Amino acid sequence: MHWASLASLALVAPSHALIRFGCSQLVVDRLDPLVQPGDVPAAHLHQIIGGNSFVPDMRPAIHDPAAMSTCTTCQPADDFSNYWTASLYFRARNGTYKRVMQKPNVGFEGQKGGMTVYYMQNQLADYQQEAKVTAFQPGFRMIVGSPTATTKAEADKFPQLSYTCLQDMGTRFPEFKAFPKEFCPAGVMVNIRFPTCWNGVDLDSPDHMAHMAYPASGTFESQGPCPASHPKRMPQLMYEVIYETAPFNDPELWPEDGSQPFVYSFGDATGYGNHGDYIFGWKDDSLQKIMDEECYVGCSSMKTQSVEAMNSCSVPRMVDEEIGDEGWISALPGHGQMNATLAVKPRAFRG
């Protein structure tokens, strides 16, 4: 379904809370406060958006993003959450790498990289959005997907992670589980949809996944019921990350054997390792108020800020290493790259 179609249908039918907003890039760094809390550097590179209190250790007992952040790269002024995904690279025929940049989505032109974030209280096909949901709470965090997945069977354990080969910026289908194997004129969109059923007790779990589940039958889109073990319906959190792959759409650059040349920062060249991370950081009950409002994208209870304000919020990288932005690098950061000059830059909680 095209989002343009969603917007047009919203004009003819009342709809309940569905918000879509852009977030500029906060930093690209080798940090991972969920999987490797406190480790500097972490195993692989991520692109991070959201509140500027992002640091290596964000355990709830010592860190509250909503209280510690002084700005956010996201359009909602009350959203100091952090959202992150692995960086994407292009591997040249000579084995060197260059990072693929993110670009803004339709409607968020001028945004500095980042991604588009959705919170939906019901499936997209139901424009009435009548089923109420419980918003995430302070201390909540989760992960979806697995960087160790190397087969479609492993990737299928996470049914709503996919890719779209953009023919233009309005393309939204078909979706694929693996990296596209052809040129994508307008880029590659990574679609990350999180599970929507919560056990109602734990704000986190050892693997950052077990406290959440998919519907017992059907899907979020078909209003499938939550399992008894996870009875609470939560918003559908979704990321759209658009990688600007057009600069690499040259047959002379792609592998001679016809394989696709893109690889995640953790070394996956299949795309099956697609995953996303989330730490809740909305101020007070601002997200619940939005979810309770009968609104569609432009919710009156959602305070917003300008693209200029979003772009001005950033933090310096803590890990000083070549990441392939300016030139080609011999290996992925943390994966065989010469790190003799790597230095760790300390950073205060408030950026």
Rank of each mutant, 00 (worst) to 15 (best):
G145M: 09
C165S: 04
L11E: 07
D207C: 10
R347G: 13
G271F: 12
N52M: 05
M101T: 09
P41S: 04
R193I: 05
I48D: 08
G258E: 00
P37K: 04
K283Y: 03
F173S: 12
S265C: 08
K98T: 12
Q167M: 09
Q160D: 11
M1I: 04
A309E: 08
V201M: 12
L9M: 13
P195N: 07
F280L: 00
L11T: 14
F179M: 06
G187E: 10
S301N: 09
F90V: 05
V133W: 08
A269L: 02
G281M: 03
F183E: 06
S286M: 10
S146G: 09
E182Q: 13
G351D: 00
M209L: 09
R99T: 01
S286F: 05
S286Y: 11
H63R: 11
Q236D: 00
A210L: 11
F176G: 14
V12F: 09
S8V: 06
V117E: 00
P261Q: 06
N274P: 09
G324P: 08
Q75A: 13
D292C: 04
N274T: 11
Q75Y: 07
I49T: 14
R350E: 00
G95T: 10
E321S: 13
V117G: 03
D292H: 08
K181S: 15
T73F: 05
G324Q: 04
P316E: 00
P195L: 12
D292Y: 06
M209Q: 14
I49R: 01
D292R: 06
D268N: 14
V55H: 07
T70S: 15
S87A: 15
P37E: 01
D156Q: 15
Q121S: 05
Q75R: 15
E221R: 02
V297Y: 04
P159K: 12
K303Q: 13
T116K: 07
A309D: 07
K152V: 12
A246K: 15
E175D: 06
E221S: 11
F349K: 15
T70N: 13
W282T: 00
